[in-house]
């Protein structure tokens, strides 16, 4: 669980971020952000979905305050993720945790939280985060400078990368573990129901689906444990 192991574990994220960051750089340019502004956003915000949405809002001339508020709502799910991650990480000085907390995204969280062992080293997390962050920032700048995407067929094919990674992280934990399979299934079903009913925006929908599934399954298993 060293820094180098972390880099290796984060490689799929770096690959998956490449097409998304390139496109973000390109879109930022067409929206009117300079290379420095686009790159700074990736450097200081480091949140894919929120950054994409902000471009749409900037181009439609939405009030900056609303853009910031919307960003908060989109990222509110990270409260759950970092609270969960805290159970998994080695205890460490608060200032170190405050630093790597910046690098928690859906993707880095997924890689860290699905590690078989508890007490994940801070250096391992640093490796996962650094390679992901590096890819995100560098490819944002490149997308803006080159002003072009990968060839269309490759761009399309690579858009599966992060989802394939989520699948690759989930399935091994699911094998022979009904609780894990149930958690993923409920999370997926609730999110799909919320999505197609149009009840909640994406930021809230993921939060509600995740929390709903996690609580439901926990109660289900707590009750089962008492009966048995």
């Amino acid at each position: 669980m060293t820094f180098t192991n972390g880099i290796r574990a984060g490689l799929s994220i770096a690959i998956g971020y490449c097409p998304i960051a390139l496109t973000f750089g390109l879109l930022a340019k067409t929206t009117g952000l300079s290379m420095w502004e686009a790159t700074a956003m990736s450097m200081f915000v480091f949140a894919g979905a929120a950054q994409y949405i902000s471009l749409t809002l900037i181009s439609t001339g939405v009030d900056p305050i609303l853009i910031v508020l919307n960003t908060f709502v989109v990222n509110i799910r990270h409260f759950l993720m970092t609270a969960s991650l805290n159970e998994k990480m080695q205890p460490d000085a608060r200032w170190k945790k405050a630093i790597y907390a910046f690098g928690v995204t859906d993707e880095t969280f997924s890689v860290l939280a699905t590690q078989k062992r508890d007490n994940i080293r801070t250096s391992f997390a640093a490796g996962v985060i650094l390679i992901s962050y590096g890819s995100w920032v560098v490819f944002t700048a490149l997308g803006h400078v080159i002003g072009a995407n990968l060839p269309a067929f490759l761009q399309a094919a690579m858009s599966i990368a992060l989802y394939a990674m989520f699948v690759g992280l989930l399935v091994p934990s699911m094998k022979g573990n009904r609780k894990v399979a149930l958690l993923a299934l409920f999370g997926a079903v609730i999110h799909c129901a919320l999505y197609w009913s149009g009840l909640l925006s994406t930021g809230w929908a993921i939060l509600v689906a995740t929390l709903g599934s996690a609580i439901l399954v926990e109660i289900l298993y707590a009750r089962k444990g008492r009966v048995a």
């Binding site: 989520f166 992280l169 989930l170 996690a214």
Partner: peptide, 15 residues
């Protein structure tokens, strides 16, 4: 909290 990772993976993958 320990259930969150697997629940979130389901919700992130689908739809």
């Amino acid at each position: 909290l320990r259930n969150i990772p697997f629940a979130v993976l389901g919700a992130l993958i689908f739809p």
